[in-house]
Amino acid sequence: MTALLELENLRKHFPVGRTGWPSKAAPSFVHAVDDVSLAVQPGETLGLVGESGCGKSTLVRLITRLLDVTGGKIWFNRRELAEVPARLFARDDDRAHIQMVFQDAGESINPRFTAADAIADPLRRLLGLRGAALRSRIEEAALQCGLPLELLGRFPHQLSGGQRARVGIARAIGTRPRLLILDEPTAALDVSVQVTVLKLLQTLKVDLGLSYIFVSHDLNVVRLLCDRVVVMYLGRIVETGPARAVFETPLHPYTRSLVAAVPRLDGPRPDAPRLVGDPRSPIDPDPNACRFYGRCPVGVARCGTEMPALRDFGGGRDVACHLAEGPG
């Protein structure tokens, strides 16, 4: 099976501080995404989790080609996209094939656009649809998302949170994308509505043959929707594997703390130390030290002198930790 999306050693470094002439000091860089390789298979949902500042959003903006990469490759549907400059990608044919559902549709939809306008915008710009063809595609997308057609004339503030979320999804699926990136699509919703939206996403994925990248820090939700999960810490992947296995027996100490911090309605929480303190600075990090070293509850001297590489633990699981041992 060929992957729909494959990232090879993707890197994104942002220059900071005194970078321009006449400074003689070497410029510093924020290592937002470092050496990230992953693949998304057709029909698969990949979860991307980690704390704020771990590089999730930068990675998403690289995949959606809103940012130029510093290094590495992005294979989408057997085509290399990293070499297309971000400013040209807006008119690229594959623009319509990679779409995004943003966090909190109430904030991300133009308040002066009706629901129909919001859904129409990418159809006009990317597919050049007009008139009856546009109208029918808008209605098709709305119906697929369970948005009653009589709501299409309303503005975002006249819609409920759940209806707004549906507009955001309809807008993204209108261009018939292959890959949908979901950035915390239910973070702004009450649990009562969240379930409906999650089930809608699950149905759409199957019906339309989509692949998802699901970005969230609500691990309970990630576990419900995702086949596989990638855990990031300070720009690097620290653990990846099938979602259920990763959450049931996390192998990386960071994943363990992350899973243990999730509030649970049922049963006792797994026993793991609290993560105290903040992540280290992402500016020019030591290339020979584990990024988690210093905050890690189990770190040893070796972690400060040798960057752990992702190791294969079988069952599709990879963990970047010197001290990790196989499950069970």
Binding site: S192, L198, K199, N220, L225, L265
Partner: peptide
């Protein structure tokens, strides 16, 4: 009861969750 049934748990599946109907 509805609220509890709508809250994701560490063990349940998406199919086992139920939304709260109405507004």
């Amino acid at each position: 009861a509805r609220l509890i049934a709508a809250t994701p748990t560490a063990a349940g599946s998406l199919a086992s969750l139920q939304s709260v109907p109405g507004g």
